[in-house]
Nucleic acid binder design. Structure first.
Lengths: 160, 160
DNA sequence: CTTGAAAAGAACTGCCT
DNA sequence: AGGCAGTTCTTTTCAAG
């Protein structure tokens, strides 16, 4: 586990908003030369902190206006292996995320569909037929806000 | 709403895995020249399909080994505005995602913490004191698998 | 759509403070 | 660790078929 100084955190915070920023632009923003910013980014990549870059796709623009979160409780725990469920769940194209969780549910799924009618089709033909499925609870996404999240300690420290 | 052809989808699928791929490399993979691939990507950006690029950060490596999903039901619906809750929730550093949802809960929060003791602190001092909070249900993340998700129709079409 | 090439910019390297 | 100056590479853009 590596910890970062304020400069590293400033870099991560800037990159969290826009990963296309060049080392030169990043350096300009936080008061660092281009090679210095670049070296810090590389160091974080090598340390396994920065694990990759992903694109953000607007599903609405692609015609997938409905996102639903499903909480799934397995009915036959032990009988059917978790691996079977995971394999089958990840094979459904409409399933974006499969989370194995501890608590009231065993799995959480993020599912996208064109509309509610399309979602019902996915639910009945894909989700409810997954191996071992018991209870399923659903929440339809209305709005979503993402934040950078904590990047280290002293997030709320007041300087003297 | 724009729809894409197979080539566009192939581009998105490749970019979903690694957004650092250059137009030249993408073209090489799907059998397209560098300018052609580049134009298609730009077209999707302008169409609002490709909305940006984000970095992926390994929270574990930063010392945040615990991720918890919270389902929040508001106690005083109508009395306290949803905006108040959202504003307060997004202001908590440990909160990564705030989702307004329809269903058993009113909001879903993704929260990260250093460990379970740290999470308890966040829960008691930050979450339970949010304006209007009623019931809170928690699921601790064990493993998470992300998939590209559907990029258009005909995901499972078999060519003749 | 392609190829080919030019211009711009970003990544990387050594050396020095 | 940071800065400077330089080289190398890629991306981006334009021409022409």
């Amino acid at each position: 586990m590596i910890d970062l100084d304020d400069t590293d955190r400033a870099l991560l915070r800037a990159l969290a908003q826009d990963a296309t920023l060049s080392a030169g632009e990043l350096g300009r923003r936080i008061g660092l030369s281009q090679p210095a910013a670049w070296r810090r980014i590389r160091r974080m990549e090598e340390a396994g902190i920065l694990t990759g870059r992903r694109i953000e796709v607007d599903r609405q623009a692609l015609g997938f206006g409905v996102t639903v979160f499903l909480g799934v409780r397995l009915a036959t725990k032990g009988r059917v292996s978790l691996e079977d469920f995971e394999r089958a769940a990840t094979a459904i194209p409409e399933v974006q995320v499969v989370q194995h969780v501890l608590g009231l549910f065993d799995y959480r799924l993020r599912v996208v569909a064109r509309d509610l009618a399309d979602f019902e089709r996915v639910l009945r033909r894909r989700i409810m037929t997954l191996p071992g499925v018991g209870n399923v609870e659903a929440n339809v996404l209305l709005t979503e806000e993402r934040r950078p999240g904590p990047l280290g300690m002293a997030e709320t420290v007041v300087k003297p």
